[in-house]
Computed example of a mutant assay.
Amino acid sequence: MQLGTRWTAGEQPPAAVPDALHEQLAAVERDLPPGAPTPRWTLTWLEGRPVAELDTGVIVTVDRSGAVVVRHDDEDEFA
């Protein structure tokens, strides 16, 4: 079992966050509206793969093929 972690957007991701996600996490953070409250990321693990979800609903994960995927929580993952 792997435990998740939380951190504030704009901060260095904790060591538990795989390097493969860092570039996309930073890209999502660059698109955050200036002056808005700073959201937080939550890292969890699903079927052994990392899932980073921002309070805004943006999800950054690794799919079965190993590709990093960015989606929003209102999108159907299996569409």
Rank of each mutant, 00 (worst) to 15 (best):
P34I: 02
V62W: 04
T61F: 11
Q24K: 02
E53M: 15
P33T: 07
M1N: 13
D63M: 06
D55N: 07
V28Y: 07
A52V: 06
D63V: 09
L43N: 01
D73P: 10
A27W: 15
R40F: 09
V58Q: 11
P13H: 15
T8K: 10
D31P: 08
V58F: 13
L3G: 13
A27N: 03
R6F: 06
E75L: 11
A16F: 14
D31L: 15
D63H: 15
G48I: 11
P33A: 08
A52C: 06
R6G: 06
R71V: 12
M1C: 12
L32W: 04
E53D: 11
F78A: 04
D76Y: 07
I59M: 07
A52H: 08
E77Y: 13
R40G: 06
T44H: 14
R40K: 11
D55P: 07
E53Y: 13
P34Q: 00
G66N: 00
D63T: 12
P18F: 14
D31F: 15
R49E: 08
L54Y: 05
P50G: 01
A27T: 03
L3C: 12
E11P: 03
R64H: 06
L25H: 00
Q24R: 05
M1D: 04
L43H: 01
G35S: 00
Q2F: 10
V28T: 10
H72M: 15
R49Q: 06
V70D: 03
D74T: 04
P18S: 10
P14S: 15
D55S: 10
W7G: 08
P39I: 05
P50R: 05
L25Y: 00
A9N: 07
R40S: 02
